[in-house]
């Protein structure tokens, strides 16, 4: 349970961090360390060099500018959870964070670290997809932007290339109301099934919807057909029945001793119903 030896550098700028990451073939960036340090302890990760991002001030902070909320990748989960501007701008992110770990892990864990780690059962990737977030990536060739839906590729696999760093997340103002629900063994554990639901209703019509399942496959699953039904038929009880009938249950591949694939398939419709209803119940007309 002790990590294998590695070297350690703590640069203070993104440029220096990129240089260091480029200098070693198996260098790894470390953010809050809440997933990477256990992997080091189990020796599932054995980097030769750890590049600590905790000393880079430009990677932390929450800023709203021109209708876009930019959250630095190293912003602590606890900071985001307690942020009034995030609550106003992207309540779904706060709802998701309430399910992420515990106060001590959220005090160190970062918003970008969880996304870059891309655990298939983590809450934040689903929230980012449901919010249509933009992931801002820095590399030796400059910055590039990737939609969340294209960023998350598979289990622990993202669009980040070796030597690149996730520097920020950008969020447009959330359209509609939302809820994030999950079934987990204990509060704070990874989800067996998670649901991020977002519904935008205007003049009785559903103008936008997102329904994203997590914990069931290699990556979060966007329920395209269910979203289409919501948008076509509105968020009525009858439409919700149709939505639940159109969920991609065949996308469930996660099958473990603690939760079989069949169990997860049984959980999904009820959890989706509750999430959509909870989102609609939270509707406050501005």
């Amino acid at each position: 349970m002790k990590p294998a030896p590695f070297d350690y550098e703590a640069p203070t700028t993104v440029a220096d961090a990129l240089k260091l990451l480029g200098s070693h073939e198996d260098a790894r960036p470390i953010a809050g360390g809440q997933s990477l340090v256990p992997m080091l302890a189990f020796r599932l990760a054995r980097p030769s060099l750890l590049v600590d991002l905790n000393r880079i001030p430009s990677l932390s902070g929450i800023e709203e500018k021109g209708g876009v909320l930019r959250i630095g990748a190293m912003t602590r989960q606890a900071k985001v959870l307690a942020s009034d501007v995030v609550k106003r701008h992207a309540p779904l992110l706060v709802q998701a964070l309430e399910n992420v770990g515990h106060p001590p892990t959220r005090a160190r864990g970062t918003i970008g670290g969880s996304c870059a780690h891309a655990d298939p059962a983590a809450e934040l990737p689903s929230a980012m997809i449901a919010l249509d977030a933009t992931m801002v990536i820095a590399g030796s060739g400059g910055e590039r932007r990737v939609r969340a839906d294209d960023f998350f590729i598979g289990a622990f696999e993202t669009a980040l290339q070796p030597g690149e760093i996730l520097v920020a997340l950008e969020l447009s103002k959330q359209q509609g109301v939302s809820a994030f629900l999950e079934v987990s063994a204990r509060k704070g554990d990874f989800g067996i099934v998670t649901v991020a639901a977002r519904v935008a209703v205007k003049d009785g019509r559903c103008i936008d919807a997102a329904l994203v399942l997590g914990g069931i496959a290699e990556r979060s699953v966007r329920c395209a057909e269910a979203e289409r039904i919501l948008k076509e038929q509105g968020a009525t009880p009858k439409a919700i029945d149709a939505v639940l009938a159109a969920l991609p249950l065949d996308a469930v591949t996660m099958d473990s001793r603690s939760a079989s694939a069949a169990h997860r398939r049984r959980l999904i419709p009820e959890l989706c119903r509750r999430a959509i209803e909870a989102a609609l119940a939270s509707q406050v007309t501005p």
Partner: peptide
């Protein structure tokens, strides 16, 4: 959580932070 320490007053996991940090 047995290794909990306070970092600037906030509870954190002592086993998930490197001493050099």
């Amino acid at each position: 959580g047995a290794c909990t320490v306070l970092l600037d007053g906030d509870a954190i996991r002592g086993c998930l932070m490197l001493a050099v940090q």
